[in-house]
Design a protein around this nucleic acid. Structure first.
Lengths: 203, 203
DNA sequence: TCCTTTATTGAACGATGTTCAATTAAACGC
DNA sequence: GCGTTTAATTGAACATCGTTCAATAAAGGA
């Protein structure tokens, strides 16, 4: 077993997160346990509890890293569609989101399904969520009257895309395959953008 | 403890489902356990396993009943808005869905978050999901060209409303209170319907 | 080399889902 | 009414879970 001070507390911290992520990828949500994480680090349970207050604290940090990775993926999608019309960029974004959910189902589910014991999520987590919204708001602002309208549109589209992903990934959308999901995204974004454009003219 | 043949197997079946639902309402998702369900029925764990193959089978049936109750609630909302314009009826439906999620958070979450061990959901469950979609399709059909367009629109709106509810209920929508959620629903439905109407004219 | 310090361990606790031999009460034959 | 069969019901057992904490063992200073 690991020898005294072979790793700093910070190293243990990162090793635990990486071990947890590996288990989630290989065995899914139910495979995650404190003993498995510790074993994968080359330590025993006790050591894990020196670094994290409990499993919830570890999961919260895993979720923070997943959130950051998701942000990178979506930002890359936006960078790749620079110059294209807003509708095409939003559809690419939705597909990138769906693709991330399919490629990392356990980590993605953990973000949304895990209920924290403590009532409120920490500020840094809400900030990371806010940064995801900001990506959408940047595209939507030119299409909306003011910033608050863009904020509302961003929350609407975000929630919608997320819901379609949830149902698609768990096979409750009653459609077959990613090809059909693409159609649902197109239906959402095309129609929503037509409505947004009409709002500007109508009022 | 319960005496031999005091309850038929069918009675035990229903008692278990009612016990499980009561525990979910009172203690939430994490409160549910086989021993607690059995104790609430006035039996012990062993008896529960004579009626249900395992906890997953019990949860699946609880979810079936929740699905049926949700269908009743939404059908009632539709009946109450008979004659009103489609947009108003869809908004009322979305609010009824959100209200159900808020009033029964554990049973609602159990429907969407529980991963079945067996790969595929049984046919009767998918049929119940299908019946929920049918409610939406009935409103959308007059607004769409053909039935397949209505089916696509129904899936789009359903997923969208669901996603907004998920984020709102778990406080990840970054909005405060049900009043704001109502605005998000309105944004979704108003803009989507404008788009649908434009589709008919444009093509 | 001994001693202090502390990183690390692993046994313990209560709870979980699940199984199944043992028990006990009802039902039936006489 | 009594003995036997039948099956409904039990609860102890097992592996696993998150969590705690006294015991241990190794590093560094004297």
């Amino acid at each position: 077993m690991a020898r005294r001070s072979e790793h700093s507390r910070e190293e243990l911290h990162d090793m635990a997160l990486e071990a947890a992520e590996a288990i989630l990828e290989e065995e899914g949500l139910d495979g995650l346990s404190t003993r498995k994480v510790a074993a994968r680090m080359g330590y025993t349970v006790g050591t894990l509890y020196l670094v994290f207050r409990n499993l919830d604290a570890l999961i919260l940090e895993v979720n923070g890293r997943t959130l950051a990775e998701l942000h990178r993926v979506l930002a890359a999608s936006l960078a790749a569609s620079e110059g294209e019309p807003a509708g095409a960029r939003l559809k690419a974004l939705a597909l990138a989101y769906h693709d991330f959910a399919r490629r990392h189902p356990a980590r993605w589910a953990l973000m949304y399904e895990h209920r924290m014991s403590q009532a409120a999520l920490p500020a840094w987590f809400n900030l990371a969520v806010h940064e995801l919204f900001a990506l959408l708001e940047d595209i939507l602002r030119p299409l909306c009257g003011d910033a608050s309208a863009a904020a509302l549109a961003a929350r609407t589209l975000w929630g919608s895309v997320h819901g379609i992903c949830v149902l698609a990934v768990t096979d409750k959308l009653d459609v077959a395959g990613p090809l059909q999901v693409e159609q649902v995204f197109a239906s959402l974004i095309d129609n929503f953008l037509i409505g947004l454009a009409a709002d500007g003219k109508g009022v």
